[in-house]
Design a protein around this nucleic acid. Structure first.
Lengths: 236, 236
DNA sequence: ACGCAAAAAAGTGTATACGATTTCGCCGCC
DNA sequence: GGCGGCGAAATCGTATACACTTTTTTGCGT
């Protein structure tokens, strides 16, 4: 999957410890094992991974730069709880960049890439039919991986990293505001996009991508419900 | 300038110390007081700001997330030295996102915004005619601020942060590969873009923006010249 | 005098320690 | 009985300490 960028970072492998913790927590957040708003105290994280608070703190800081965690001064770190407005911005950003990434990817795509994409789709479909929490989590990840793989194929490491952030944050938004119990991503739409790329119909591929993002967003209920409880929740 | 986002972060102000150091170093990098490749040892940074290595380290970590500093394991932190390929990716990313940002900004722009942009341009022009290092540095910053202000007007905090990263890294690239002694940004092009926005000619504004970015990139000499000194530098 | 090896110096990686801030419970007071 | 303040516990912010890695220096042998 993420061969190019990872290989560069891992030139002396053995990531500095904090990175491993960061990755572990990120995965937990993206796979929704950690709910938005959950407190991540430095001591707890440290104990959990058997490291000092120093490393736990570094990992949480890193996650805060990715927007997955909010650190409030003197209060601690919490799994991000994106506001409806933030959610809209995340998807606006995706609408803004994904067509461009798609175009760049299409210009460099190889037959091998396409077969890898197809394989990803297959895997995704397989997971969709399975039952159980772990399958559901893997499915969430796989559906995001489609978008990430396009970014990787584009060959632009900067856009790739940006997409990683956007996909991860999208996962949080869907966890918070998603309505349909069904999959977070219309599965077939991924396949349609690949087909359009294969046919060199770039405009159509981009349009499909925009529709796809719109579909995800349409499944959200972005009504403000934060702290409305204070007054109106009982004045109903 | 950055009222909206900053105000949110600064809700309890008094940034945690490390942030101040990070901002100070970033400014030094963007204004080219620190050259690419310069070593930033944790002890030195700490002494310079009269804080412990802990905070210095945190600041350097933060800068590495923005791509302005590279941290090599067990070796230390260095001001980023973007490769020609990285440089191309940075500008590819800008070409990809800036037209989109421009479109979003144009949709929300107010008369007040336009006058602020104009004022920025005036300031930029004034600095361009001045002499001296400090003026030159301020000019570099001002020319980037134009692009950042558009991102701010777009109202998307995520894209704004991304643009901040891209502009900062662009400054590094220009420092490394820029040829013309003149300004890094064709000054008049900024004005043209504003004019096109005012005329509601979005397509033209986007095209001008793409040309503008292309002009900046055209001023670069992106030939690989890494460590050619070992042999060939004297075999000429 | 040159090269190599070992030791010292410098610098990073991580843990621990201590002061500061927030949070929560408890007690007296109204 | 409720409310406000005071103190303890928890938690964060920062500094310091120690272990390990890298780099430099020194000293010896050829």
């Amino acid at each position: 999957m993420k061969s190019a960028v990872k290989a560069q970072q891992a030139e002396d492998s053995a990531e500095t410890g904090a990175q491993q913790i960061r990755d572990a927590i990120r995965e937990a957040i993206v796979e929704r094992r950690l709910s938005p708003g959950t407190k991540l105290s430095e001591s707890d994280v440290g104990n959990l991974f058997n490291v000092s608070r120093t490393l736990a703190r570094a990992a949480l800081q890193a996650l805060s730069y990715e927007g997955l965690v909010n650190v409030e001064k003197n209060r601690g770190a919490f799994v991000a709880y994106p506001s409806p407005d933030e959610a809209r911005q995340i998807f606006a950003a995706r609408r803004l960049v994904e067509p461009g990434i798609l175009r760049e990817a299409a210009a460099r795509i190889t037959a091998g890439d396409i077969s890898q994409l197809r394989q990803l789709l297959l895997e995704e479909g397989r997971l969709m039919s399975e039952r159980g929490q772990t399958a559901r989590r893997a499915e969430i990840k796989a559906s995001g991986d489609f978008h990430l793989m396009l970014a990787e194929i584009s060959g632009n490491a900067i856009m790739q990293r940006f997409m990683e952030e956007l996909v991860a944050r999208s996962s949080l938004v869907i966890a918070l505001y998603g309505q349909s119990t069904a999959s977070s991503c219309g599965h077939s739409e991924h396949g349609d996009i690949i087909a359009a790329i294969e046919n060199d119909d770039l405009d159509r591929a981009c349009q499909l991508m925009l529709h796809h993002i719109a579909h995800i967003e349409a499944d959200l209920d972005l009504r403000e419900r934060k702290s409305l409880g204070l007054k109106e929740a009982f004045e109903l």
